[in-house]
């Protein structure tokens, strides 16, 4: 087991299976089909992301460097949370970008029943170490255990 510590963007405790994207997550491309066509598993629809394409994102500990793409990114994440199709948590190796930050804050402030802990600044080593299927435990102080 290895422990990493990052900055708490959205507080919470959770345990989930890791799903890793080594490139930036294009939020709109990844979630659009899941939101539009009733896919409750939130299967990633971004053909340009070989790590995630076709994989279930809902309920997973989504490990990524950052999000990229359209400035709809924040509101797409907000919708995923509102429709209960969000990852169990989002774990960023880099400092969070403005679009993902918007999504994290919006769900925290406007969706009282939403629960998606978000931690950033976990470092390059975190993303190099974590692999799909590993068990991730997130604690509300920003500690992330990977085993």
């Amino acid at each position: 087991m290895k422990t990493f510590t990052g900055r708490v963007v959205s507080k919470g405790n959770t345990t989930a299976e890791a799903l890793v994207s080594h490139g930036g997550l294009n939020t709109l491309a990844s979630f659009q089909k899941a939101l539009q066509f009733g896919d409750k598993n939130a299967t990633c629809g971004d053909q340009n992301n070989p790590d995630l394409y076709g994989k279930q994102m809902k309920g997973k500990a989504l490990c990524l460097p950052r999000t990229i793409g359209s400035t709809t990114g924040g509101l797409v994440l907000y919708c995923a949370c509102s429709m209960e199709r969000q990852p169990a948590c989002m774990l960023f190796s880099e400092p969070i970008d403005s679009l993902a930050a918007a999504g994290a804050v919006l769900q925290d402030v406007w969706l009282p029943n939403s629960h998606m802990p978000v931690i950033d600044s976990l470092g390059d080593e975190f993303l190099a170490f974590v692999k799909d299927g590993m068990k991730i435990t997130v604690k509300e102080d920003g500690t992330v255990e990977v085993e």
Binding site: T72, G74, L75, S98, A102, G103, L106
Partner: peptide, 9 residues
């Protein structure tokens, strides 16, 4: 202007 997300705008 920052690269704001929709809704934040």
């Amino acid at each position: 202007c920052n690269r704001n997300s929709g809704i934040i705008d």
